[in-house]
């Protein structure tokens, strides 16, 4: 009886130890897992293909759109000043909707409400380019998502989703990205899943892609049904991941293998 209790206690201790969050000092960006070649590609702006999207985003920022015939620059003027540090706070709470929105959704809200234009499709070149341009203005600044107390219940939902096992492989995000980030999967580093550089240029995609695209790819990887783009579950996951990466510098546009 006493042995059984001991085993139960030990298992409980082991499982809590496994499920623990990664301590601040051990947090590592996906960058630190990359090869020197891929790091060099991210480090130099003329070699980083994500910068091509940033250039396009800069042009889009100035372009008038919609029936209001306004450009982003007409309200926000110089993005280098007005958008500095903004991306480091996203996803943020949107009062009108009563829920958090990510940077892509914020740009599309601006388009529909203020420019009176049709929203960009998820993963369209335009949306990725504008998001990358806005997020790049926060490069090097520490991630500060989650200051708003109204976000707390949504962070909690995202956290629950992060811990929840699902799919045919019956894995939760935590099983790889908290428990096994120092190991490899099919020769590739597993990484901690810190979303420091989105939208980022993934060599496998040969394109820039959003955090939602990355999450959907991961969910498909554990053979679960991926949530559609823009679904609250994905935004809550994004939100939790960004609060989990608080204090880490923004790298947008990052490069990943």
């Amino acid at each position: 009886m006493r042995i059984a209790a001991c085993i139960a206690l030990l298992t409980a201790v082991a499982s809590t130890a496994l499920a623990a969050e990664i301590p601040q000092a051990e947090r590592r960006s996906g960058y630190s897992f990359m090869s020197p070649d891929t790091k060099a590609m991210q480090d130099e702006d003329t070699a980083n293909p994500g910068m091509l999207f940033v250039l396009d985003g800069e042009a889009l920022w100035q372009r008038k759109a919609g029936t209001a015939n306004k450009a982003c620059a007409d309200c926000h003027s110089d993005a280098r000043i007005s958008m500095k540090g903004v991306a480091a706070h996203y996803p943020a709470f949107e009062k009108a909707l009563g829920k958090p929105v990510d940077l892509e959704a914020r740009i599309n809200l601006c388009r529909t409400n203020h420019q009176q234009a049709s929203p960009f499709a998820y993963e369209s070149h335009e949306l990725l380019a504008l998001t990358a341009y806005v997020a790049q203005q926060s490069r090097g600044m520490p991630i500060a998502t989650g200051d708003d107390p109204k976000l707390a219940p949504f962070v909690e939902k995202g956290h629950a989703l992060f811990m929840q096992r699902q799919g045919q492989l019956n894995l939760g995000c935590t099983n790889c990205h908290d428990d096994s980030w120092d190991k490899k999967l099919a020769g590739s580093a597993i990484t901690q899943g810190q979303p420091t550089g989105y939208p980022l240029y993934r060599l496998e995609w040969q394109s820039l892609g959003s955090l939602q695209r990355r999450l959907r790819a991961c969910i498909t990887g554990i053979r679960a049904q991926a949530y559609d783009y823009g679904k609250p579950e994905l935004v809550e996951l994004e939100l939790y991941l960004m609060t989990r990466a608080r204090g880490m510098p923004v790298e947008t546009p990052a490069v990943r293998p």
């Binding site: 130099e44 003329t46 910068m51 396009d56």
Partner: peptide
């Protein structure tokens, strides 16, 4: 909208 980055 093609764009190029040159480093010389």
């Amino acid at each position: 909208m093609p764009s190029a980055l040159i480093n010389v």
